[in-house]
Design a protein around this nucleic acid. Structure first.
Lengths: 133, 133, 133, 133
DNA sequence: GTGGTCTAGACCACG
DNA sequence: GTGGTCTAGACCACC
């Protein structure tokens, strides 16, 4: 089975971050489990038609964060699942992301209820159930 | 009255955007009202110890967005409140901001309800983002 | 294919605005289509012998207007066509432009019918403004 | 009778140009005739609550264009009515103004008919009949 | 290679 | 004094 990674080049989100996020999500949703092998840099780059450097960078960051482990010559594997962020750190990151949202939407003059409703909608599209294979 | 604006140079957020956001918030909160004069480019640049061009850029963007009006030789003033974007465009921008939020929080492993609750809290006490230490 | 763009530095119209206008026209006329890549900032700057910052500014404004999309590391591309301004805002901008026309022509002592007839003619052969000699 | 000059500070049009245009229009419409005395710089500046330098500049430009004549110590007077611009020059200026209009409205995506209709409306408001005194 | 941000400093138009 | 434009050159992130 090929991992169904999907990137959207027509987005402001950097591609290497999209790749990271996709892998993190795949792990969070259980599609990828501890010990699973990730596609090689070259293979994934070809599949996504992006520059191999871009894939490398994503893998490198995931490696330094302990999400994946690189075993030179054998490949890159999903690491032991563990909480990467402390509770405090998660709070901080959540608040930071929410502040950014408030900044970005402040001048759109939309009621909070509208924002939340749309968030709920997008959230279900964003966290799809793992596909039944 | 003390400093109207405050910026945090050691953040990934560009300075000119921090300035824009602060001004938008000051207007939204009523601290700045229609017709009020903003500090001069040079004065604000000095106060924030940034280059005048940086302030200029923030003012220019706010001007094209219709948030403020520039009158060369006289100064920059808070403009009449008006919505310049079409409903479609506002939805597009909302979706963009929400996608960014979902990306930022995807791997924090927090339930959506938790995110929304925190959003509601922060929304009421909306204030400038603290610096990354 | 020869030069895509041409600017006239000895005009009162700012260079970055000339660049913006030329790109808008190229898109409107179909010479540039959705997805087409614009010349790189540095390349266009060299071609026009202006500072890269000047081109950058034009691209940045077109980006915030949604006319083009910037993908750092890849380039700037023509975006999907969309109307970002509300009907109200478009009327406001039309009125502003028309007022300027009336100011510019007020003392030429020409009947309105003459102005409109010429406008209809020019409208069909719309092309870049010639330089002031 | 005081001349009912009116300026709009909340416009991008420079104030000195607004003053020039008003005087030109007053002459074109017959409200000011050859030999009529214009208000003094100081008086007009006070009436419009603008900087005297601004009025000075407007008078100076009108003087060099031959629209008014300055008689130091006596005042400024409307000059002999004459065509200031040659036919050719008028064509050139008209085309220039129309090109600017087309540039400014190109991205508003409005049909020409709409622009012309609005132009006709604004034109009647802009060239009011001289008031019956 | 690509674009984005910022500084420094010059010059101009407007009031 | 005010803001607006442009250049030159540095540094960074992304591909």
């Amino acid at each position: 089975m090929a991992l169904l990674f999907e990137i959207f080049p027509n987005t402001s989100e950097p591609i290497y971050l999209q790749i990271e996020t996709q892998i993190r999500k795949a792990i969070a949703s259980g599609r990828l489990k501890k010990g699973d092998q990730l596609p090689s840099v070259r293979a994934l780059a070809e599949q996504l038609t992006v520059n191999p450097n871009t894939v490398s960078r994503a893998y490198a960051e995931l490696t330094t964060e302990g999400v994946v482990e690189s075993h030179p010559g054998r490949g890159v594997f999903v690491a032991e699942r563990r909480a990467i962020y402390s509770g405090e750190e998660r709070e901080r990151r959540l608040d930071e992301a929410l502040h950014r949202l408030l900044d970005d939407t402040a001048f759109l003059d939309l009621p909070l209820s509208r924002i939340i409703k749309r968030l709920e909608t997008l959230s279900t599209q964003y966290h799809p159930k793992p596909p039944k294979i």
